[in-house]
Design a protein around this nucleic acid. Structure first.
Lengths: 341, 341
DNA sequence: CCAAATTTGATGTACGTAAATCAAAATCTG
DNA sequence: CAGATTTTGATTTACGTACATCAAATTTGG
């Protein structure tokens, strides 16, 4: 049987009340006594029964998710997953609130973060806009003892407790190797469709992609990045245009959203050409395109896993517990026609 | 606030004791009263607080993992993950026991399963040997109300509650497409190294692999399967032999274990040849081979995820709760040099 | 309609922890 | 050393559920 507070009391030769004072850092315990109790805790290997403690405290974990107000399918998905998690709140003792902030607006994000500093929720998960002032705001929260997890997009050099998202440099590198290998030594040009180079995850994907292409596939050259602002219409126009003008394009890497437009352009302009296409994010559209051969591979991050992981980590940090690292690593999913879920 | 048993009692106009009798299916409640209570439960949306219930019951979940006594790195890994989970037992209220049974021995497995039917643990996870008598033994357990999860290898047509493992047909198909695409239309022969065609997961991988090669890569032909019994020595010998005798081999698919031997053979016999190699299971050896270019891609199933998922599912089933399906889907990991964990 | 059987209610204890109160003991201050 | 202060102990209640006991009410059978 697992040791209880009573066992600590017996082992330390003190009363239950004193044990409680030590465990919950309440005042009124002499230094020597406190140490006696702490030693006993260590010796008998006491671990607080979090379930019982939460029951006694009537504890819930108020968590806040800060998401950008972006109108693309991935953010919708993320939002839906947060709501799904909120629907499990009563079982998980969480109390989840979602705040939407304008995308790419560090000022707005900082404002929200600072307000949350007053409110002191049990944890905060945010899709970070990578700016120094945001980093500082996050560091203030962390210093204040509030668990912070970055979601999907990380924050350079910040003190955030955890990042629940994929390694985007690795994603870009993987895309490059897949594309390069699929093209099998052919010579030609690669078009890259991104949302915006202002977003850190897109920048990182491009960085990884370009590095591997340059180092390992010298017969391929990357055209100037097409920025489609994650917007299907715009992506459609820009890609169609590029395909019309440049007949040397043999591959496309779509590292952001707006793939609906990309696919439309491909179906219009490239039925005769055998383009190799790698895209990010599994949606109804990209899935269909993968199955009909318009797209060759899809790289994906599972929004549901990211949200659930963020919640697990925030709860654990709030209780000062450790997490199972391997469990919280968000993996890059690679989908071909054959392994779609 | 979440409704409690008291709220049910009030809503149904009965006493706490009666609610308790209904909730825990104790006798001595008239049919009409039982229905009144059940309606109240449904109406106010009561959900039992599992943490409090477990506390009151002093409940633990005795779980049994049945693993084959195979001496390959994947099974070692699986074993280690079960032990790691057992180490978390006190926190998770589990009580995990591992039973090793001879591999490929349906009789031994059935015997163990039948004994467990007497013992009635909270749940059983087993690496199934795909045989009718095993299926029947599992179905007996399920009929008896014991939650059963197959792990890594599934059991055809059985009533098991859940399968915690990858879709091996999809894995084989994925391997084929990767290999085919990487080879870019070249003509030649593909060697397949398996453990044994008696194991269901290996058979399925081959089945998927062969289907896609036949359908989509007609320039490739598959050589008769090499059965290395998941043994490095044997794999080494057989692969070296095949490479010596057949200069038409341009690709290799290793769908089982024993990759250490494969890699050794490749380094000895194929330094001059540009073979494309796809292997299963990420180990220290395959990882190194992937990084130095000996292997081109690794397909992997995460043993840790499989074990943790099996435990979550068994606990949920034991409590009659539902699981988050997306969370319990075991994904096929595809690793290239660039996205290794 | 009465006795027997069944159903229901009332109540208490337990699980492991948190939190509060009050009294007793120990320590410190002057 | 008295008195003030700090530290410690003892005890109680609570969280939401499980489970047991005994009494009271209701239903059933004859």
């Amino acid at each position: 049987m697992r040791p209880t507070v009573h066992d600590i009391a017996a082992a330390a030769g003190v009363s239950l009340a004193t044990v409680d004072r030590v465990l919950n850092q309440r005042p009124g315990v002499r230094h020597v006594t406190r140490e006696k109790v702490e030693n006993a805790i260590r010796e008998i290997g006491y671990i607080r029964d979090v379930a019982a403690a939460n029951l006694a405290k009537g504890r819930t974990y108020p968590l806040v998710f800060i998401l950008p107000a972006s109108d693309n399918s991935f953010m919708h998905r993320l939002n839906a997953e947060v709501r799904a998690a909120a629907a499990r709140s009563s079982v998980e003792r969480t109390n989840i609130r979602t705040l939407e902030v304008p995308a790419f607006d560090p000022g707005a994000l900082v404002k929200v973060l600072d307000e949350l500093g007053e409110e002191r929720p049990s944890g905060i998960a945010l899709v970070a806009t990578d700016a120094p002032e945001v980093r500082d705001a996050v560091d203030r929260l962390v210093k204040d003892g509030i668990p912070v997890v970055t979601l999907v997009s990380d924050l350079t050099g910040s003190q955030r407790h955890h990042y629940a998202g994929v390694d985007n440099i690795a994603a870009g590198r993987t895309a490059a190797r897949l594309l390069g290998r699929f093209l099998g030594g052919a010579r030609g040009e690669i078009a890259v469709l991104a949302g915006s180079m202002l977003v850190r995850d897109h920048r990182e994907r491009l960085e990884g992609f370009a590095a591997v292409i340059a180092a390992e596939f010298p017969s391929l050259s990357i055209l100037p990045v097409i920025e489609g602002r994650d917007d299907p219409e715009m992506a459609h126009m820009l890609v169609a245009d590029a395909l019309s003008k440049n007949s040397g394009i043999i591959g496309i890497y779509s590292l952001g959203a707006g793939n609906r437009g990309l696919i439309k352009a491909l179906k219009e302009k490239a039925i005769d050409r055998s383009l190799t296409v790698i895209a990010h994010e599994l949606t109804a559209h990209t899935r269909a395109a993968l199955l009909d051969g318009t797209i060759d591979a899809i790289l994906n991050q599972d929004a549901g896993h990211e949200v659930r992981s963020a919640i697990r980590v925030l709860k654990a940090k709030a209780d000062g517990l450790s997490v199972i690292d391997a469990q919280e690593r968000i993996r890059l999913d690679i989908f071909l026609q054959d392994n779609l879920p």
